[in-house]
Write a protein that binds this DNA or RNA. Structure first.
Lengths: 249, 249
DNA sequence: AGGCGTCTGTAACCTATGTTACAGAAATCA
DNA sequence: TGATTTCTGTAACATAGGTTACAGACGCCT
């Protein structure tokens, strides 16, 4: 749980920034440009934003932030992968989000006067984060109408994402969750022979259930001839059943 | 499920607004002033906002909006009480929020390009709503920095509220939920002899469990001598136990 | 005071999911 | 290639909470 936080960009002006640092700076700016929040933002503004921030590096499976921890910053995942988790006192885990760089975190809470991290953030692979003081960032936001609009859209999307997740988790049983997941895959991949985009173990975490319970459901659906499995591939034999069960009964 | 929507304030300028309508207009403005979102907003701007809106009246227990329904408006509860609900295909209910006028609804989603209502909205008592076109409102927002700041704080608070709820519902068992609820009451009322602020029936809906299940838990806690009940009053005998169980095991 | 709707306690029974454990398969690494 | 780690299937058993049903208590209306 080592946290190597190095404020390499603390100095405004350029006379003591080495060539290597400028290169890194440029790389980070390029990464941010791929974030849809910064789609239309000028290079200069992006540089200002990055310069005002602080880089944090983590190895795999490290805890980056804890749910309930004070959040006075905006956090970007610049490189690597991380997950957002609910973990309770019994060690039960519910995976809220699997994030791949470049990705903005904690975006929806920064305007609150008592902003807290809503989830634990944990790396999966080695990762690099950029932390930006929230007041500084809000100043940037208020200066650039495009950025503000992008950001607000992002916040609303985050809200819709979390309420959807909430509904899925709390109002559906496990069979419905599985059918819902398979339907989503089938839509994305435009075929009835889908390839799972995560392991069953991770899927169980996303559903907030135990792995054997999830395994049971897949096996039952296979026994009923509704799907057929081969490694990571799922052949949806009875697409109608899967689709209907996901939404209705 | 009657929906009596009457656009009484569609006309700008005053020559054909009767005295009664002006009175009503003023009343609504006063109501909005009590909303913390509009705390520092000028009377004139508030009038513009109200005038741009549309009034909807509902009797008790009516469905006002449905989860998933397109949301191209901002909705205020001006008078009455309403609840936000998740309802699934089996008729299972989870009450997300109990709202009392004056209260702003659907505030967090309006910036999204595909904004949907995140919950069903249902009246409890006879109620009056004010609906404002979201693009119109966003224009108002962008003109008034104070309003924008208030609004953004509101959005972040809504996000924190829903993620907290999510955690409570999905990561705690029923005993923990009850202990958590009693702890909250005890803090609010600054006593160990608390008065429940809703019926057990409603509480069961808020916890997303059946009433008998909730009843069972209260009875068990009483049997163990941890609480003692008398109507709506709960005497917390073992405050330590309740507090600890709410958070930890 | 009587009547009606809502709230509450209670009980028997059911079911989905959790728990634990183990062994085989697959993927990754060295 | 073999060694390790991670993933997966499977099974026996435990348990929290759901389901249904009924009767008594409470509050409110007229």
């Amino acid at each position: 749980m080592k946290q190597e936080a190095c404020p390499i960009y603390g100095i405004r002006g350029g006379h003591d920034i080495t060539g290597e640092k400028i290169l890194r700076l440029e790389k980070f700016i390029e990464i941010l440009k791929d974030c849809d929040v910064f789609a239309d933002v000028s290079h200069d503004l992006l540089r200002d934003i990055v310069i005002s921030g602080r880089i944090e590096k983590y190895s795999s499976k490290e805890l980056v932030r804890r749910r309930g921890q004070n959040c006075d910053e905006l956090l970007f995942l610049l490189q690597g992968e991380a997950v957002g988790l609910f973990v309770n006192s019994e060690g039960q885990v519910l995976q809220i989000d699997h994030m791949v760089a470049p990705k903005l975190l904690a975006s929806a809470v920064i305007f609150s006067s008592e902003a807290k991290y809503p989830v634990d953030v944990e790396t999966i692979t080695e990762s690099v984060f950029l932390s930006i003081d929230k007041d500084t960032f809000i100043d940037f936001l208020m200066q650039d109408k495009d950025l503000l609009r992008n950001y607000l859209r992002h916040v609303s999307d985050a809200f819709l994402f979390i309420t959807d997740k909430f509904y899925e988790i709390s109002m559906k049983n496990l069979v419905q969750k599985v059918c819902s997941y398979l339907t989503k895959l089938s839509q994305e991949q435009k075929t009835v022979e889908v390839t799972m985009d995560m392991t069953k173990e991770e899927l169980a975490r996303e559903f907030g259930v135990t792995r054997p319970a999830l395994s049971r459901v897949f096996l039952e659906l296979e026994k009923l001839g509704i799907i057929q499995m081969k490694g990571k591939k799922v052949n949806i034999k009875n697409h109608r059943y899967i689709r209907d069960y996901a939404e209705f009964h």
